[in-house]
Design a binder for these strands. Structure first.
Lengths: 191, 191
DNA sequence: TAGATTGTTAATCGATTAACAATC
DNA sequence: TAGATTGTTAATCGATTAACAATC
């Protein structure tokens, strides 16, 4: 397998989608598939698929195509738990709860490792298997656990204070459900 | 004002952000701003700002910069109600209700013109000023009102049946909060 | 082997950034 | 006028698509 460095964000963002389509194929007992067939299925170009998959190594075989199970396992590994990007949820109110439950972070390559809120009524409650922490613990937590992504589910006013702090604490990506506009020069994640 | 044709989606997607920053400047009684200053504020390049704004006409003045109020008004007009892209909400359950309330479609250039659900308990209820309609009315509604964007807030199984139908009905953009992966060759909107 | 299909290089396309002449 | 700053062209950059030699 070739060096995984320099794989563009565009490619990485597409991996979960490959994963899902391969899962589907597996479910339907499809054992092999060509870039051309997969391309038609996913409504992308075959070139893109070959380019993308080749970032991680020669998974295919000339004249044959790709082994669905092998490819699925390879991508699973790349996206595997060890490779999931740690994310935190900030704001565990109605919006936060809904997002946490529905947005399927894992399928997108993220793993929720903590949830924070300032409301003491919520602190201590369980949310998708996590105990909601008080927002005052945010800094200490980030220093020790180094989450890379923050899912922002707080009102505008609260959000406006979070941006710089989080960036200082090492957060490099925001998935922003508040109406505040992070004027930080970091990637905002695509839904 | 020059021809507004051929303005890229990237530029259009940035307009709401310009709008918000100009609003802020107005609130702070700033009357003029150079592309350079605005660039620093928004953490983008001055070139990009000048290129973007010039898609719609020469709003600036050499040696002076941009008149904040004038520019704000121009962008307001471009994003104005008449120019808001009509959108529909599909799925008015907990997720749909939260999204409808929180995601601020208008700030992103969309106007919610209808909400649909299959649950008869929800049909008839009010949601952000709209009466929730039954999903069976979807097709008739789309034919007559031609929404361009659909905000999908239904479970995976329900979502999977919607994609092609909606595309056939003229929907060209999806803002997808379900876990179903629309394999349609249309733009998915960026959060 | 012959046909199919990858891996990979080259071409294209579009968006971003840089540069600067025009001009307020 | 002189300085500032736009409007706009040209250069750069990155991502996508096309093409095809390698090869299973």
């Amino acid at each position: 397998m070739k060096n995984e460095k320099n794989v563009s964000l565009s490619v990485i963002n597409r991996l979960p989608r490959y994963h899902r389509f391969l899962q589907e194929l597996l479910d339907n007992n499809v054992t092999r598939i060509s870039s051309d067939k997969l391309a038609k299925l996913m409504k992308v170009t075959a070139s893109q698929i070959r380019q993308d998959l080749n970032c991680f190594g020669g998974f295919g075989q000339q004249g044959y195509g790709y082994n669905v199970e092998l490819l699925f396992n390879e991508i699973s590994e790349i996206l595997g738990s060890d490779n999931l990007t740690p994310a935190i949820l900030i704001g565990a109110g109605n919006l936060g709860k809904t997002i946490a439950g529905q947005v399927q972070l894992k399928k997108r390559g993220f793993k929720l490792i903590a949830a924070f809120d300032k409301n003491l009524d919520l602190v201590g409650q369980q949310l998708v298997g996590l105990t909601i922490k008080h927002i005052d613990d945010l800094e200490r937590f980030c220093v020790s656990h180094k989450p890379k992504v923050a899912v922002i589910c707080v009102p505008k006013d609260a959000a406006s204070k979070l941006g710089d702090t989080l960036v200082d604490l090492g957060v490099v990506g925001f998935w922003n459900f508040s109406s505040y506009d992070f004027a930080v020069s970091h990637d905002t994640l695509t839904l």
